[in-house]
């Protein structure tokens, strides 16, 4: 379980997260949504332990989130660049050497599904293939938490579809929880169980998608249009 208590994150020039308290239950797919600069990526980094709150606390399975709790969370950053000097195969081997929960067979399977050439140098990969690589390297880890920062952003519909299908195929919700940030809300509507909506760094709403459909008859995008002005 991930728990945030009165979390605030300040940077030199701005406050990225303002006093957020929430609990993310396990075994679900959760989307973090909100406009540009609303704090989506920062929230995910706080959970990954790659950023520390200025005040408040973030715990992952009861432990304070820091660099080392990363062993419970497979994190994929938005910048999406892996060591460009590696080939796809070398990147897999490196990842496998670093993370004991990395499943090589699974990586191979995803690599084939994503049609990645293992001998290609990463710096020579197209943007779409980098997105695929990133997803493959992250989903091959059998970590309790999978954290994806904008996994669909800037990719063409075919790649996005392959990535979404990859998530459904290779995340086991009986043992894993997937948290992703996205501004492609329509794309993830049927994929996510619940969403965390941020507005200017504050928690705007956290709810089940089906609750939104059932009670308000709205899609996330419609709801956001209605409440974000």
């Amino acid at each position: 379980m991930i728990q945030m208590t009165n979390v605030t994150k300040e940077y030199a020039k701005n406050t990225a997260i303002k006093d957020i308290s929430l609990t993310v239950p396990t075994g679900r797919i959760i989307g973090i949504v909100g406009g540009n600069g609303s704090g989506k990526s920062t929230l995910l980094k706080l959970i990954a332990g790659l950023a520390q709150p200025t005040s408040g606390s973030v715990t992952v399975n009861g432990e304070k989130a820091n660099r080392r709790t990363g062993q419970f969370a497979a994190y994929s950053s938005e910048s999406g660049i892996y060591y460009p000097i590696f080939t796809v195969r070398e990147a897999i081997r490196f990842q496998a050497s670093q993370f004991p929960d990395f499943n090589l067979a699974k990586a191979d399977e995803i690599m084939k599904l994503m049609q990645l050439d293992p001998h290609m140098k990463i710096k020579a990969l197209s943007k779409g293939n980098r997105g695929r690589l990133q997803i493959m390297l992250t989903l091959a880890r059998e970590a309790p938490y999978i954290l994806l920062d904008e996994p669909l952003s800037g990719l063409d519909p075919m790649v996005r579809d392959a990535i979404v299908k990859g998530m459904i195929s290779y995340v086991d919700l009986s043992t894993q929880t997937l948290i992703m940030t996205s501004h492609e809300v329509t794309e993830i509507e049927t994929l996510i169980d619940g969403f965390i909506a941020l507005k200017d760094g504050s928690l705007h709403r956290m709810a089940d998608v089906e609750e939104l459909h059932e009670v308000e008859g709205l899609r996330i995008a419609d709801w956001m249009k209605k409440t974000y002005d």
Binding site: K45, A48, L50, R67, R68, G70, Q71, Y75, S77, S79, I81, Y82, Y83, Q98, F99, P100
Partner: peptide
């Protein structure tokens, strides 16, 4: 520095 999260997101101690 260009992919700091990749470097830091590692189970080994700093």
């Amino acid at each position: 520095g260009s992919y700091m999260s990749v470097w830091l997101h590692n189970p080994q101690a700093a």
